[in-house]
Design a protein around this nucleic acid. Structure first.
Lengths: 215, 215
DNA sequence: TCCATAATGTACGAACTAGTACGTTTGTGC
DNA sequence: GCACAAACGTACTAGTTCGTACATTATGGA
């Protein structure tokens, strides 16, 4: 005769850890599968807790995705803050910022993928979130400072604004990671390979500096 | 008393048109909603025919997506073919190729989105398709020719290969379209606006030419 | 004209998926 | 200890979505 087990597992409440757990797993799932492809059950299964808690803490799939997106953007805002460019000249400062952007995108493929996914969905979630826009304003301010210094030093042209420059830098760094799979398949070049990566890192710096120096 | 209508609609068989109809609608749906977000029923509804025909001609959702992807890649292979760069010097030839790439991406947002989507899914469908890889080889050959001419003319550096160059050009042209929504939301700049677009078009040409001329 | 096959329409089913009803346990302030 | 809210688990449901069984019509060749 099987006895009904007396509850052998002591449950421990830890709301903060549960929330973080869900967020982490959800980020991986959304980044890997896309918004529609992500499964709430799949997220729940890889969690220390249950699906019930996803709805308890986040409300639903869409709100969970929103939380993931916000978390992703928030965790990387400090990019330029960690950068020491006050002491160096404009060209050197810009070089460091480009390299930091490059390294950041390389190290955060999930973030890159989430941005791609958000664009597939026409950016409708990001547009709802006022806060996130401000977080990203700082990189423009930093670039603007570098550009101004460059004009003063007489080493940069003056008809390129900070947003133009940011577009040029991000597009290259972003594309390398976001389109790695199709690019690799079509041209037989693995962009994540260390040697290829190192060459790219040099080239984007050269490209931007040559461009700004022109005229 | 309502009479049963004698079949008032003469059906006409037109397999080619039916197939094309399905493909077109499917391309729009997949590009707009992503692979998982796309609904077979939604595609069928916007078609002249029924869902039954999707399965009759294509076999299933995944195979339909594959057909859409192939069609998208195929319809744009002729990019460089339409280009007349035999008569001009290396710098002018490159300028025309960059502008053609830029215009192409701008005019084909659905193609851009499909490539993004394919990358979200780790390029697994593209990897299955050998044919498509060869279609894209031609742009590399064209770039290689231009680079070689540039070396002969003494106007281009010689440590940048065709794939490096293609990466630099595509990434900018692609990103502008693919990340239009998040970029626009974050930096309040509408990249599709004619004036912004025209400036970008000039800038990517300047950037690449300045880079290749350096040293 | 008639038949074989390709092309098409309708209706339905099985499986999946987001979300919830309901009950139980844990921790905390008193 | 004790009451009460916060935290959590299980099992279920309603609706959706891909795919198909079955029947019917069109069309080209014998």
């Amino acid at each position: 005769m099987l006895e009904r087990m007396p509850p052998p597992s002591k449950r421990t409440n830890d709301p903060e850890r549960t929330k973080r757990d869900i967020l982490e797993v959800a980020m991986a799932e959304f980044a890997s599968e896309g918004y529609s492809g992500a499964r709430v059950d799949a997220i729940a299964a890889r969690t220390r807790t249950s699906k019930r808690m996803i709805y308890y803490y986040f409300g639903g799939k869409e709100q969970l995705y929103l939380a993931v997106l916000e978390e992703a953007y928030r965790s990387i805002r400090a990019l330029e803050d960690q950068l020491d460019i006050a002491g160096c000249d404009a060209r050197e400062g810009l070089r460091r910022l480009i390299e930091a952007t490059f390294d950041h995108d390389e190290r955060n493929p999930n973030f890159i993928r989430l941005v791609s996914i958000e664009n597939i969905h026409h950016g409708k979630h990001l547009k709802q979130n006022l806060q996130l826009r401000q977080l990203n304003a700082s990189v423009i301010a930093t670039l603007d400072g570098i550009l101004k210094r460059g004009h003063t030093e007489g080493v940069f042209r003056d008809d390129v604004d900070a947003i133009d420059l940011h577009l040029a830098i991000s597009s290259y760094c972003f594309f390398r990671v976001a389109n790695r799979h199709t690019f690799g398949a079509l041209f037989d070049r693995d962009l994540s390979e260390p040697k290829v990566l190192a060459k790219s890192r040099t080239q984007i710096v050269e490209m931007i500096l040559a461009w700004l120096a022109a005229k």
